[in-house]
């Protein structure tokens, strides 16, 4: 065949003339075998490092400004600690992992946990609250421990997702129960259960439900068919 626009001799099967880029007439399209398969090109991951550098710079300047203002106003650190804590947590959670092409959550979760614990410990010591060791550390430590365990299993164990999520929800339900007990003990309140009952029941039911689905194959097949994604 020949290009109807520039007249160059072409093999059958092309979409456009390679020289004048004219569309080949519909009657000629699809005739013969195409030179290469006609598939969409997979998207490449964009490089956001330039943007990340700017964001990091913004965080540093913002933190520095807040600290400087606080020092000028009060001659000591007051509200700037809270602002810096929020900035640090936000940066550690959302920006820091993006420096790596494939950030590993197993590594970055403890980083966020350490930042949070450091900030809470500072607040506890500054205010003399006495709640860090008896309440904040066990409750948040437990939460991050369960989260880390779940994330590690999801990252490195093939399959068993229903068991992992089921176990995680069960642990979170129990953690609500423990957190209320610790809260009441820390602040010398009468020991009884109020706000933790509903989450305990909800999470434990959800966790048990997932484990039952995982154990019983007909259930699993039914839910797979209904909720596959």
């Amino acid at each position: 065949m020949y290009c109807p626009n520039c007249g160059v001799k072409l093999e059958e099967g092309g979409k456009k003339c390679p020289l004048c880029l004219a569309e080949l007439p519909p009657s000629e399209k699809g005739k013969g075998r195409s030179f290469y398969p006609d598939l969409p090109r997979p998207r490449q991951k964009e490089d956001f490092r330039g943007l990340l550098f700017l964001i990091t710079l913004f965080f540093l300047i913002a933190g520095g400004c807040v600290l400087a203002l606080d020092l000028i106003q009060h001659r000591t650190v007051t509200y700037s600690v809270t602002v810096l804590t929020i900035l640090l947590l936000f940066y550690a959670a959302f920006c820091l992992p993006r420096w790596w092409r494939r950030p590993n959550p197993v590594i970055f979760l403890p980083v966020v946990f350490c930042c949070l614990m450091g900030a809470l410990l500072y607040q506890d010591l500054r205010t003399g609250g006495g709640w860090f060791l008896s309440f904040a550390l066990p409750v948040l430590g437990g939460f991050f421990l369960f989260l880390e365990a779940a994330v590690t299993l999801l990252e490195y164990v093939r399959g068993g997702r229903l068991y992992i999520f089921g176990g995680f929800f069960l642990a979170i339900g129990v953690l609500f129960f423990v957190s209320e007990l610790l809260y009441r003990a820390t602040f010398s309140m009468p020991i009884c259960l109020t706000y933790s009952i509903l989450p305990l029941i909800l999470f434990c039911t959800l966790g048990m439900g997932l484990i039952v689905i995982a154990i019983v194959p007909p259930f699993r097949r039914y839910f797979e068919r209904r909720f596959f994604f």
């Binding site: 001799k9 003339c17 390679p18 195409s34």
Partner: peptide, 10 residues
Amino acid sequence: LDLTLESNER
């Protein structure tokens, strides 16, 4: 030269 062209133009 008797050229025949083919390409992957999309």
